[in-house]
């Protein structure tokens, strides 16, 4: 059965952990893939929410973040949309270079792209769609393969 979940979150980073827990609890149909969800989807969703609140909405408490989650068969999709003006995700530098690995920030989009099967931004850059395929034959260890791709 397909599951659809829509959340409207206040722009408060303290809500992120609870929101991610709530989504994970609702995704009971995916319990057999709990390990992959626990790392890949949980971290990916946390990164997307964090980016939306800190950078997209620029920490503005008056703004909100919309989360839409669909579980369709073996695929879980989450779209996270903020009320900011967007950004160019291709301008984010590689955080694993020797010069960047010592920096305190800049790993969020890299982690999303490493841990999920698809990460796409809308043209404006204020909405990101995350896709994780649960029955692709991948084990959780396959995340490292994704990182090399």
């Amino acid at each position: 059965m397909d599951t659809e979940l829509v959340l409207e979150l206040p722009n408060d980073i303290r809500t992120i952990g609870h929101a991610v827990d709530y989504v994970m609890e609702r995704c009971t149909a995916c319990s057999e893939h709990a390990q992959k969800l626990d790392l890949n989807f949980r971290v990916g969703l946390t990164e997307a929410l964090s980016n939306a609140m800190l950078y997209g909405n620029a920490e503005d408490p008056a703004k909100r973040v919309r989360v839409e989650v669909v579980v369709a068969g073996s695929e879980i999709t989450a779209r996270i949309t903020d009320e900011g003006s967007g950004f160019d995700p291709d301008e984010v530098p590689d955080p694993t270079t020797p010069a960047n690995v010592v920096k305190t920030g800049g790993r969020g989009i890299f982690l999303m792209r490493s841990l999920l099967d698809e990460v796409t931004f809308n043209e404006q850059g204020n909405s990101v769609t995350l896709v994780l395929r649960l029955e692709s034959g991948d084990s959780p260890d396959d995340v490292s393969d994704g990182a090399r791709a």
Partner: peptide
């Protein structure tokens, strides 16, 4: 610990420094 995000990694880098 269940999981760490990029902000958590970042704070460890900052503290180590």
């Amino acid at each position: 610990t269940g999981y760490i995000d990029s902000s958590g990694l970042g704070v460890l880098v900052s503290l180590s420094k």
